[in-house]
């Protein structure tokens, strides 16, 4: 990665983090309605994968989707407007946090049904293969989501049809509030995917560079017709399953310890500054810019136009009668 690539990657890592920290504040003060699931702690996975993708490549995200949207290029203000339910939101206020999509960016939606994105992304990969495209499709799923059958149906079909499809498994060790040990018989998630007949590797999802390298290999293989792959990346979830989750299942010390030892941002900063590829001043300038971007996004969201009751009828069908 050259200087600009590294600076861009840092910019997105920081944007993802600040978006979630800011969303948390606004949610807790009652500004945002509904359920929200924060991605903080896992940013290196979304950014490490999506740095390889263009707008033509398609991704499908999870209920914990803000990070994937931002990494894929969705506008943070348009996303914040969507969280607020404004008609200027990416989905005109019809989707909200769990259904943010931006088809112009190849972002085919966050998805509130665990595991459901995997088969749909197989269809996107099928469209690429059928039309002779070189674009790929990526679905994200958590470790909890690897226990739902449709994910394996999707993996098997992608292998049978040798589609340009990458399955990214984000292992944060929790399926909602249940620890992985109580939910997953074989803790080796890469082995489970490999058993379906495709290359599968596991990397440290806190290490942006490890994710970036492994994702690059899988995506390049898919682009040249080499079929699907699975990438397992483990990283902590800094907040609860959803905002408002009291996290009675883990201590504050445990969470503080995760923040201290397994935070992808300090890890990234340490490496690029030690190598001398980015300076502290450059990073600080990015940080300041991201704060400004998030202030602007929240201000826009608060002032955004509101839907009117009649809007409930729009976009059900292209044409019904």
């Amino acid at each position: 990665m050259d200087h600009d690539d590294l600076l861009g990657a840092y910019r997105r890592l920081r944007l993802l983090r600040e978006f979630e920290e800011r969303t948390r504040v606004e949610f807790q003060t009652g500004q945002i309605a509904g359920f929200t699931h924060l991605y903080a702690g896992m940013e290196a996975i979304a950014v490490g994968v999506c740095e390889h993708l263009t707008d033509e490549d398609r991704i499908i995200s999870t209920h914990r989707g803000h990070g994937h949207c931002l990494a894929k290029g969705c506008d943070p203000a348009a996303m914040m407007l969507e969280l607020w339910g404004s008609t200027d939101g990416l989905c005109r206020g019809k989707g909200g946090t769990m259904h943010i999509a931006d088809f112009s960016r190849g972002m085919l939606g966050a998805n509130a049904v665990v595991g459901a994105g995997a088969p749909i992304a197989v269809g996107a990969a099928l469209a690429s293969a059928m039309t002779g495209g070189t674009w790929v499709a990526v679905s994200f799923v958590g470790d909890g989501g690897t226990n739902i059958g449709s994910v394996y149906e999707a993996m098997n079909l992608a292998v049978v049809l040798q589609l340009p499809k990458i399955f990214v498994i984000e292992d944060n060790g929790w399926g909602e509030m249940t620890p992985i040990a109580n939910a997953t018989g074989n803790r080796d998630l890469a082995a489970r995917a490999a058993a379906m007949g495709m290359p599968a590797v596991a990397v440290d999802g806190v290490d942006f560079f490890a994710v970036h390298a492994a994702a690059g290999e899988a995506i390049a293989r898919a682009r040249r017709g080499g079929g699907p792959s699975t990438l397992v990346a483990s990283a902590p979830r800094f907040y609860g399953h959803h905002e408002g989750d009291p996290q009675l299942y883990r201590s504050r010390e445990e969470i503080a310890d995760l923040r201290r030892r397994e935070d992808c941002l300090p890890r990234f900063i340490e490496r690029v500054t030690t190598e001398g590829s980015l300076t502290a001043a450059e990073l600080a300038a990015v940080d300041a810019d991201i704060v400004r971007i998030m202030d602007d996004a929240v201000a826009k969201a608060k002032a955004g136009p509101r839907p009117v009751p009649g809007d409930v009828f729009d976009h059900v069908y292209a044409r019904y009668r």
Binding site: V122, G123, A124, M130, A137, E153, L157
Partner: peptide
């Protein structure tokens, strides 16, 4: 086989594959 695709016995994958392709401009 390019346009008449036999699948495994995997109904969720069949419907997902069709809908994902439809979202990308195909007519499955």
């Amino acid at each position: 086989r390019k346009r008449v695709i036999d699948t495994p016995i995997s109904e969720a994958a069949i419907i997902g594959a069709a809908s994902g392709a439809a979202l990308c401009g195909m007519r499955p």
